[in-house]
Design a protein around this nucleic acid. Sequence first.
DNA 1: GTCTATACTACGATAGAC
DNA 2: GTCTATCGTAGTATAGAC
Lengths: 206, 206
Amino acid sequence: MLSEKLLNTAIDHFGRFGFEGASTRAIAKASGTAMSSITYHFGGKEGLYLAAADHIAACITALQGERVAAARAAGRASRDAAIQGVLGVLDGFALMMLSAEAAPWARFITREQQYPTEAFDRLYNGAMRTLSEAMIELVSRARPDLPEAEAKATTILLFGQALVLRAGRASVCRVLAVERIDDSIAALLRARLRANALCILSETPQ
Amino acid sequence: MLSEKLLNTAIDHFGRFGFEGASTRAIAKASGTAMSSITYHFGGKEGLYLAAADHIAACITALQGERVAAARAAGRASRDAAIQGVLGVLDGFALMMLSAEAAPWARFITREQQYPTEAFDRLYNGAMRTLSEAMIELVSRARPDLPEAEAKATTILLFGQALVLRAGRASVCRVLAVERIDDSIAALLRARLRANALCILSETPQ
DNA sequence: GTCTATACTACGATAGAC
DNA sequence: GTCTATCGTAGTATAGAC
């Protein structure tokens, strides 16, 4: 599929160089086609950019959607189920942050987080919204003592622990004194994240 | 100071548009000078980029250095002092992530985290290294039950909770349903971060 | 030190062949 | 649907005036 190839190359280039820095010529060449194919398929550079955002949202939903929906439903049973649900969703998110497949998506999204454009709306509504809403519900059930705003803040901070694994990747590698995060280091980080989250969620109000 | 003005404009433009996307013409114009001043002062676009990284590192050190050194020294006294030290350093870091002043630095650094260049070495050695080393020492004292690798992982995850406040800013605003993070929301987030960190650090091994 | 002028390359968009 | 050719614009670098 030519347009699929163009989309994946576009995500990579936009993530690397930003919207202005990326070149449609280079994207087309790396996809093995001519620049005017982009005009034909997507209407231009901006159309390609927005289509790339939609594609990322679809990929994330395909990867996380089922797990999140299941955890959300199961979490309604009990506080303990909610805690397990948070741990499961968070671990799925951490796995995505650790995977090489998701690296280009993360670079694209990270840029949009700084200066959101229409592409961020598509990312948020297409993928992030269900993820965050499920997490907020689960956290609220796990910590019924927290007011809504505090539960939302806790959700954000929990995601932050997973986010750093991608958004701060170079620093993570420096701190751990490794070239790349292999399976054993990933397991260690995930276990720590799980322990931290469990500790935060199971804290009982005094 | 003309070269100072150029540096600050450069940090902003490189952070917004990336190295390739930023234009030396635009940077010069926004600084009220001609493009060839960049050649004169910094040798070219790349020299300006590296100088911008050095400038950011110096600014961060000026902002955090004293507090971090004090916390590190005080933390050697007792486990409790170490815990308080971590909370203090983390709060200082969170404040930086929340401040508008540091936003351009964060955008610049976030880009470097994804594809580190020589500029990342300068950022890490110039500012991040002392910060992370101090935190690892403090966390190790606060949680003497943790092996070194686990203490490092915990440090990373603790920083992640503060990092998300900048690196995931657009999502944070969406989740909290606000346009911008005002003082009261910032206070809430910092308090939650403090509570989470305290809970993680004061956990006693079973 | 800071400017203008210029050389050269690469950009996105578009028209038109096939 | 995919290509080549071309247009106007904007990029960096550099030389030389002041």
